[in-house]
């Protein structure tokens, strides 16, 4: 009898949590519906955000979000890969536990701290790099900056601040620990027998890593990267502190002004009318769906790969 009560309590708890989760998702969809049915397909193609004038869409913010996340991934993956390899293959065993804790701690540092650091310290230093890239690689459309004249020695650096590039680099520091801990986990599971086999065939350490550890950890590397991507897409405060919002598609990643879905919500929620709220909900729903797809793809890749499966040796 108490067993049946117990099982009932457990089932009730599970159902309650499920109900809360479905409520969040369902409510988002329900409230977003009003805006979506008003805007229809133009919601995906419009760049401006004027819900009260009937003109709103997520083309600009979505592109901004994706670009920031991509910049973040481009910087975070080499850092995370190097750190994961260093911890699992190169670091002295005594240091290993400490390093793992440090990386985990880095994942727990609040995003507002990263934002402060980026705004007050990092931005001032990285602007010179941005200027250098735009001076020498400005002919690539991605690195082009309107209004920057490399021959003008007195030009201010303000066209290079608050850009996708800088926001992405800050976010990369926030997602790198997450990627790193997934990668380290799978690298450390690479079978010892195969490692020793590679050494016995005369491989150097790097040869062993390339022929055993990296192929074994491939699923974990891809999955970890996608987990980091999901996190980078939803990052709010650090991005909101860095960027200066514009509502046009901004493909020039070095140039001042960009936008992201989450900073759009943080910026506009206070003044939103009923339809504006609904439109913000729709934007949030789009963001949620995007991170959801990325996360599920990541977890299915990690689960299906050989990583984590024991080998015969």
């Amino acid at each position: 009898m108490p067993d049946r009560v117990f099982r009932g309590i457990l089932r009730g708890g599970g159902t309650l949590v499920l109900a809360i989760m479905l409520l969040v998702g369902g409510f988002l969809t329900y409230r977003a519906w009003q805006a979506l049915s008003a805007a229809r397909w133009s919601f995906v193609t419009t760049e401006t955000w004027e819900p009260d004038g009937g003109h709103f869409g997520i083309a600009a913010v979505l592109v901004g979000t994706v670009l920031i996340a991509l910049v973040a991934i481009v910087f975070a993956v080499p850092l995370a890969l190097g750190t994961a390899l260093y911890i699992s293959e190169f670091a002295p065993p005594r240091l290993r536990r400490t390093l793992i804790s440090v990386v985990d701690l880095m994942a727990a540092v609040p995003s507002v701290v990263y934002g402060l650091w980026g705004l007050f310290f990092f931005q001032g230093h990285v602007v010179t790099v941005a200027r250098w890239i735009s001076t020498y690689f400005g002919w690539i459309p991605l690195f082009e900056v309107d209004g920057a004249d490399p021959r003008d020695p007195l030009a201010t650096a303000t066209v290079f601040t608050s850009s996708t590039f800088i926001a992405g680099m800050i976010v990369s520091l926030m997602v790198a620990p997450i990627i790193c801990s997934v990668m380290r986990e799978v690298f450390s599971q690479a079978p010892v027998g195969e490692r020793e086999g590679a050494y016995a065939l005369g491989a150097h350490r790097w040869g062993m890593i390339r022929s055993v550890v990296l192929p074994f950890g491939k699923g974990g590397m891809i999955g970890g990267t996608m987990l980091g991507l999901g996190r980078a897409l939803g990052e709010t405060i650090a991005v909101y502190m860095i960027i200066s919002p514009v509502f046009v598609i901004q493909p020039h990643i070095l140039q001042n002004g960009t936008s992201s879905v989450s900073s759009l919500i943080a910026l506009r929620y206070g003044e939103a009318s009923d339809l504006g709220m609904s439109a913000l909900m729709a934007a949030g729903l789009a963001l949620f769906l995007m991170t959801l797809v990325v996360n599920f793809a990541a977890s299915s890749i990690v689960a299906r790969s050989r990583s984590g499966a024991a080998s015969d040796s």
Partner: peptide, 27 residues
């Protein structure tokens, strides 16, 4: 049923924190 709940919970870990705030703000 518990498999379903686990899937939903895993999906909700992807919820961006600002959307959680927006949900409470709206409701």
């Amino acid at each position: 049923f518990s498999r379903f709940v686990r899937t939903i919970v895993e999906a909700m870990t992807a919820l961006p924190s600002i959307v959680a705030g927006l949900f409470i703000y709206a409701t």
